[in-house]
Simulated scan of single mutants.
Amino acid sequence: MKKTILLMTALICTSVQLQAHADTLSDIKSSGKITVGIDPTFPPYEYTNDQGQITGYSVAIMQSFAKNLGVKLEFQKTAFSGILPGLISGAFDAEGSSLNITAERAKKVLFTVPYSKTVNGVLVRKSEAGKFSGKTLSPESLSGMRGAVKTASVPEQLLKSFNQQLAKEGKKAITIINVDSLDQTVSTLMTKRADFVFDDISVLAPVVKKYPEKVAQVGEVGPAQWMGWATRKDDTSLNKALSEHILAMQKDGELAKLQKTYLGTTFTVPASQFIPQE
C-alpha cells in the first residue's frame, strides 16, 4: 500500500513538473492559435486605429510571425501594468507590448532579440517651449516640475532615478504623475496638471504631428535602450522562434520597411549582448 501511495505521489509530481515546463510553442502549433496580451495605447508600436483594429510597428511583426507559423493571432487587451504579471502567470501565450529591455526585467522574464530602440523625450505645451530653447536637457532641467508618465513604464523608472540624482544634489524632486495611457498623459499636460510628458520620442512624434499648435517636443533625457518582447523564463522554444523571425525579417529587409513606415527611420538590431548590465 505504501509503495502504491509513493508511486502515485511521484506520478503527480512528475505531471505537475511537466505542466510547469510545458512547451508553449508546441501548444500554439497544436491549437492553431497564439493568444497575445497587449496594451494597444502605445503608438506607433501598438495602438487601436479609427476602425477599432489593433495595429502598429510591433503588431505588424507579431502578425508576420503568426502567419509564418501558420496560426491564428488573437490579442487579449491588458493594461500595461498587468502585462508582465499576466505573462508570468500564464494568462496568455505571449506578450505583444513593446518593452524596454532592462536588467531588472531580465531577472523575471526572457527577452527576445530587440526589434527597436528608444530614447525618451520631453513634451511640453507649445506656449512654454521657449523656456527650453537652446538648452541641453538633463534631470536638473526638470527639477521641481510635474511629469506625466504611464504607470509601470521605463519612463516612470527613469524619472524615479532622476529624483535620486536630484536628491543627492540637494535639488527639488520631479513630481511624478502616473496614468494608464499615452492619451491620459497628454490630457494631463493640456489641463495643466502636469508640466511635461516623458516618453519615447517615436511615441511623442505622432502627438506633435496631431497637435502642432498645442504641444512641442523640446529635447531628450536619459539613456537609449533596446525594445523587444518577453517570454516566460522556461519558454525557450517560443523565445527562439520569435527571435529568429525578427532577425530573418531584418535580413530580408522587411523589418527596415516596417521601421520606415511606422517609425520614420531605420536601424540594425543586435542578435546578442543587448541586455544592459546592472
Rank of each mutant, 00 (worst) to 15 (best):
P43M: 08
A248Y: 01
I34A: 02
A216D: 15
I61K: 03
L166Y: 00
G144C: 05
T78G: 01
G82M: 13
E46L: 03
F65R: 04
F198I: 02
I12K: 02
K171Y: 01
S243Q: 08
S202C: 07
K2C: 09
A271C: 08
R105F: 03
T41G: 07
K251C: 02
M190I: 11
A224W: 03
P114A: 05
N178C: 07
K160E: 15
Q225V: 13
Y115K: 11
K251S: 12
T24E: 09
Q165T: 11
K29R: 13
Y262A: 00
L69Y: 03
N100L: 11
K108T: 06
E128P: 06
I176N: 04
G82Y: 07
S81M: 05
A194R: 05
A148R: 01
T266S: 10
Q164N: 10
D27F: 02
S133Q: 15
F198K: 00
T268Q: 13
S98A: 15
S243W: 03
M62N: 15
P114G: 06
F92K: 03
D235Y: 08
I88N: 07
K107D: 14
G82A: 13
K260A: 09
N239L: 06
G219I: 08
V179R: 00
A152E: 06
N120C: 09
D39P: 05
H21W: 14
V197E: 06
G52Y: 02
F75D: 00
A103N: 13
G56A: 02
E220S: 14
S97D: 04
A148W: 00
N100G: 13
Q259S: 01
R105A: 10
I176Y: 01
R146E: 03
A256Q: 14
V109P: 05
I246R: 02
L204W: 04
T188V: 07
G37V: 02
W226C: 06
A248W: 05
L87D: 05
F132M: 08
A173F: 01
S15C: 14
N68K: 14
S15T: 12
L142I: 05
L99Q: 15
K192H: 14
E95C: 05
Q165G: 08
V179F: 00
Q184H: 09
A194V: 02
K33R: 10
S81A: 10
T266W: 04
L25N: 07
T102L: 08
L84F: 11
